[in-house]
């Protein structure tokens, strides 16, 4: 088990390096291949109407004249050592871990992301809890009584949940519960440890709307998985032992039915942690997703690079956790 863990961690680190190299290449190598001059490239890092001095500063600071692999190496080194930027007489320090520096806003990328992470984490993890509980419960009940009224109704709702886009359900939820009946008033994000109650109150609507989208999928996956598992031979064996139906369904059925869900959940959560773009936008939450949208709108390349790497990190991390969990849950995985 331990060596398995080590192997997975090593491969995850390698994967992250590859992802960062590819991302870096997209930002710094592709423009070169496409025929952009370093001047044009440097221009993109600065706001409108740059002076030649600005361009020269960017070129020097980013080392745009050097080969791309050297730039990549400097970038990687910067994460661990920090980077100093000089703008004529002025200087800026990008602190460890330095994931870049916005020449447009003159703000380091990492502190900006760091300040927004709690919002995205709260949103994604909270919603995940909601959709796991509601989705799995619905799926199990549906599977136990397929064709029943509950089954048809919940699967109908689930279909709606899968098909309705976030910006629609989110807007409806806001219209109903914030404006029509102000149960959840609009307020800025409150950190969890400042005031847990207010924290939850602000996030209930985003959680529920986001979870609605996912729980629909999870209910359907759970239902299908349960129906399949409950017809397995080992379920018959469990009943033949004289186990109660609840034990049969939960300990023998659900355990096996949920295993494939781990994979899907890892992917979904990983994606969300990289920023729930639409949800954050709809509910005006200043999370990583909103930051990504702003960065893209402003064409602020270092910021875009930063959030892209962060998203990649979360996906790789979640996949690592999935792999380890899988081995813990399914003993057959450890061998292969």
């Amino acid at each position: 088990m331990f060596s398995y863990l080590i192997r997975r961690v090593i491969s995850a680190v390698i994967l992250l390096l590859i992802v960062s190299a590819v991302t870096f290449g997209i930002f710094f190598l592709l423009p070169k291949i496409a025929g952009q001059t370093t001047d044009q490239l440097a221009q993109q890092y600065i706001g409108k109407s740059p002076t030649p001095a600005d361009i020269a500063a960017v070129k020097r600071n980013l080392g745009l004249d050097k080969p791309v692999y050297e730039q990549y190496w400097e970038f990687l080194k910067g994460i661990f050592t920090g980077v100093d930027y000089k703008f004529g007489p002025e200087a800026a320090r990008c602190h460890v871990p330095c994931f870049g520096y916005s020449f447009k806003t003159h703000i380091e990328v990492w502190p900006e992301i760091q300040s927004r992470l709690p919002v995205t984490l709260s949103l994604a993890l909270g919603a995940a809890v909601v959709w796991l509980v509601s989705g799995i419960t619905t799926g199990v009940i549906s599977a136990l009584r397929p064709g029943s009224l509950f089954d048809r109704l919940s699967m109908g709702v689930a279909l709606a949940g899968v098909s309705l886009p976030m910006f629609f359900t989110g807007a409806i939820a806001l219209a109903l519960f914030t404006y029509q009946w102000p149960i959840f008033e609009r307020s800025d994000y409150v950190p969890l440890f400042d005031n847990p109650l207010l924290w939850a109150r602000t996030l209930v609507l985003p959680w529920v709307t986001l979870a609605f989208l996912y729980s629909a999928l999870y209910a359907r996956l759970t239902r299908a998985g349960m129906l399949e598992t409950l017809s397995e031979d080992y379920i018959r064996t469990a009943r033949a032992k004289g186990l109660g139906e609840r034990t049969v369904v939960v300990r023998h059925g659900l355990r096996a039915a949920l295993t494939p869900l781990i994979t899907v959940f890892g992917m979904d959560l990983g994606l969300l942690l990289g920023g729930a773009l639409i949800t954050e936008q709809v509910f005006s939450l200043q999370g990583v997703g909103a930051f990504a949208v702003q960065a893209i709108t402003a064409n602020d390349l270092p910021n875009i690079l930063g959030v892209t790497l962060l998203a990649a990190f979360f996906i790789v991390l979640c996949n690592l956790v999935v792999d380890v969990l899988y081995a813990a849950v399914d003993p057959r995985v450890r061998l292969s």
């Binding site: 009943r239 186990l243 399914d330 057959r332």
Partner: peptide, 25 residues
Amino acid sequence: VRRLRGRRMAMIFQDPLSALHPYYT
């Protein structure tokens, strides 16, 4: 009947690989 199952009457099945739960020892 459930309380009789496994206690007074028990059953063994055709394919022990699929009849045993893969996740439990």
